[in-house]
């Protein structure tokens, strides 16, 4: 798919702009890593106070796009604009702090900058894990760690919260709670939210805008609009049973239960699989 848009010189891939109405804007962003094309011609705008969600099948480049937007990986093509002075709170996917490094939750939260104990306690309570302040980081569960990471992101008083699979490692009943929490935090802090998620049905309910990604942007817009879009239906099928996050998608390849790509000869109708979390 050739891009009709102007290809910007790569040496201006990240710029701060004074006159940007949105928080961040990507135009024609492409990414090639190790000779493999990961992203192609991605246009994206992140609006203040809005929840933007990136959805897509495994290997669609969701996390890669997030890393480009965060400035962790320079894009191969295209240009990124950030509002000047934009403060980002980032919640990465699944952190494991090595057992050899002794560190409490409290210390983990103040790695960015020194903060009074009460402030740390308050923000932990806000995300629902107030009792963990003095625990070693290695002793908390996966779901608790997700909330601690959210707390660390909030401590930066961000203009934009970037969340990579925020409900990962949380059981199904807790997932709805996580997205409610995110929506509530958006209302309280007035920040924009950009997240990547697999939990389709929950994401659709919580998002203001959905970006359906499969190496390029398939469709984008309000969740209602996107869910009726043929491109979206091609990716995720057209029925979304409430409360169950299966997503059959019809593609040029199939996956087995562990997310490995199967040979072309896989039987028709086979690729109905659960929420695999690899990406």
């Amino acid at each position: 798919m050739g891009s009709p848009a102007v290809l910007f010189a790569t040496n201006q891939k990240s710029q701060s702009s004074d006159h940007l109405s949105c928080l961040m804007e990507a135009r024609g962003v492409g990414l090639v890593l190790g000779g493999r094309r990961i992203l192609r011609d991605v246009d994206l705008r992140i609006e203040p106070g809005q929840i933007t969600t990136i959805i897509g099948p495994n290997g669609a480049g969701k996390t890669s796009l997030l890393r480009v937007l965060l400035g962790l990986v320079p894009p191969t093509e295209g240009v990124l604009h950030r509002r000047r002075g934009l403060r980002i709170g980032y919640m990465p996917q699944r952190i494991v702090v090595d057992e050899i490094l002794p560190i409490t939750v409290r210390r983990f939260l103040s790695l960015g900058r020194r903060l009074p104990r009460q402030r740390l306690q308050d923000v932990l309570r806000e995300v629902g894990v107030g009792r963990l302040l003095d625990q070693p980081v290695q002793s908390v569960s996966g779901g608790e760690m997700q909330r601690i990471l959210l707390a660390r992101a909030l401590l930066r008083e961000p203009h934009l919260l970037v969340l990579d699979e925020p409900a990962q490692g949380v059981d199904v009943s807790g997932q709805g709670e996580v997205f409610q929490l995110i929506a509530a935090l958006r209302d309280r802090y007035g920040c924009g939210v950009l997240m990547v998620s697999h939990e389709l049905h929950l994401v659709m309910a919580a998002a203001d805008s959905v970006v359906c990604l499969n190496r390029h942007v398939c469709c984008t817009g309000h969740p209602e609009v996107v869910s009726r879009d043929p491109a979206y239906r091609r990716l995720f099928g057209d029925s979304m049973p409430p409360g169950v996050a299966f997503y059959p998608h019809h593609h040029d390849h199939h996956h087995d239960l562990r997310g490995n790509i199967l040979p072309e000869s896989a039987p028709e109708g086979a690729p109905v699989h659960g929420e695999d979390n690899d990406d």
Partner: peptide, 17 residues
């Protein structure tokens, strides 16, 4: 000390911060 510790615990998080 402080930046090195932050980078040691999680590089990407430290970079974004």
């Amino acid at each position: 000390w402080r930046p090195l510790l932050a980078a040691t615990v999680h590089e990407d998080l430290a970079r974004v911060e």
